[in-house]
Amino acid sequence: MPSPASYGPDYTPQMAAAIASCTASISRLDARISVSSAASAWNRRATWSGYARALQLQSAEVDEIDVFSWGCGLQIPGRPLRSTTLDLFDRFDAWAAALADPDPLAWRDTLPTAISAPAVATQHPALVRALDQVRQHALADGGILPWLGLPFALRDSGLSASTLPCLAGGAKAFRLKRKPDADDWLAVLRALERSAREGLERLHDLEKFHRNAQRAIVEAFRPGALPRLLALTHHRPLLSPQGVADALALSVAGASKLLERAVAADLLVEITQRRSWRLFLPPDLAVEFGYAAPKRGRPAKEPPPLPASRDLTVAFDAFDQEMAAIDKLLTSARGPKLSSP
């Protein structure tokens, strides 16, 4: 490896192992998301996760669940109220629009002209080049955009085929130090690897939820609006009776009964034990955010796949169409608010 006198970290065995491990985690996530049927729903959740991490690097006192609740348009009782004087989410719509932009050069064209890579950069790993772009951007811009730019830098470096929004991040040391030391680089690499692993685990959980939803629909004597509710849950995991009623054109009482059916089928968990202003989350997110206790002991064996039949194929295709319709509805509802970065 070249001497990193003015570029990149010192390539000790520990650093080389961290770079290789982080690169492998990103590659695994990218490979899985490229073939997953739950990619659209995962991307929506990953966008909230990545934005939460970027806010934390800006020293904002916000947790991931707060960004999820903002994205779903709900306030969770007991959580701090959002500031009315400072808009923490003023960059979110522009970032979401950039993530969905098919032009791979659109984000790069908005970078400050001061960001450049020396000739020696081509001799360094792609992951180091991507992180150094974020470091230069953080020195030139004191806002949140440098941390939001990491998924684009990873894509432009060839580490991922598409932007993976859960990989937004960086390190405060990139902004505070002209040359981060080895500990700073290792901290960034480990945090990025952890984000990639968590993103892959959440994709697995989402796909498992999809399979469980299919089984629940097949086992229901009269599914009714249950498929539409489960399709909505994929894309908007935090639910309330009023929100479900508005999205699915139901009465509040009907939406409450529908949510209770999903709870009885172990597809949702109520996180507010109250008669009014009830809120629900999928089991995996309820456990992750601390609203439900994780199950102890050996994990339950997943039921075998349902036998193939024409009737099941029709039911599953209808469910996938419901998911696509909900995705289109939520995307179009957000569309007019988008602005360019």
Rank of each mutant, 00 (worst) to 15 (best):
V218C: 00
G199M: 06
P237E: 10
M323I: 06
L248E: 15
P227R: 09
G143S: 15
R298L: 15
S40G: 04
D266Q: 07
L232H: 07
T110P: 00
A249H: 13
R194Y: 08
R236N: 10
A98R: 04
G73F: 07
A231D: 05
S69A: 15
G158W: 07
V287M: 08
R178S: 15
S162K: 13
R44E: 09
A96R: 04
A31S: 15
E61P: 00
L285H: 02
S240D: 13
R82D: 12
H137I: 03
D266V: 01
R194W: 11
E270M: 12
A119E: 14
L232F: 10
G78R: 11
S69K: 07
A38R: 12
R310E: 14
L29S: 02
S116W: 08
I217P: 03
A300G: 05
N43I: 15
P294N: 11
L150N: 02
K328M: 14
A308Q: 12
S309K: 09
A60L: 03
A54E: 04
L81V: 00
G50N: 10
A286K: 06
G50Y: 04
L226Y: 05
L203V: 04
M323P: 00
H235T: 08
T313S: 11
L86G: 00
P241M: 11
L159G: 05
R32M: 12
A325H: 06
S309H: 12
L145K: 08
V287P: 01
D87Q: 13
A171G: 12
G149M: 09
L86M: 09
V287W: 03
H137T: 03
L229A: 02
D246P: 00
P2D: 06
R275T: 06
P307M: 11
A308D: 15
A216Q: 10
S256Q: 12
F174Y: 10
L159P: 01
L330I: 05
L164W: 06
R202T: 07
M323S: 14
V67I: 11
S83Q: 11
L176K: 13
D246V: 00
A46L: 08
A114Y: 06
W95R: 03
L192R: 01
H210I: 00
I115G: 01
L57R: 08
V287R: 02
L230M: 10
W277T: 03
R129T: 06
D10H: 04
E64I: 06
W48E: 05
G8E: 01
A130I: 02
G143L: 15
A117T: 03
R175K: 14
G149I: 04
K177G: 03
D246Q: 13
L279Y: 02
F221A: 14
V62Q: 04
A54D: 03
T163W: 07
W48M: 11
E64L: 11
R197Q: 14
A333H: 13
D93L: 05
T272I: 14
A140F: 08
S59Q: 15
A292P: 00
W277S: 12
A300M: 12
L312S: 00
D93W: 04
R222N: 11
R190N: 13
E260W: 06
E193V: 00
A16H: 05
E64H: 09
G143W: 08
D87C: 15
R310Q: 12
R261A: 08
D10I: 06
A247R: 13
V218W: 09
W95K: 02
A247I: 08
Q14S: 13
P13M: 14
W42G: 01
F316K: 09
K177F: 09
A286L: 04
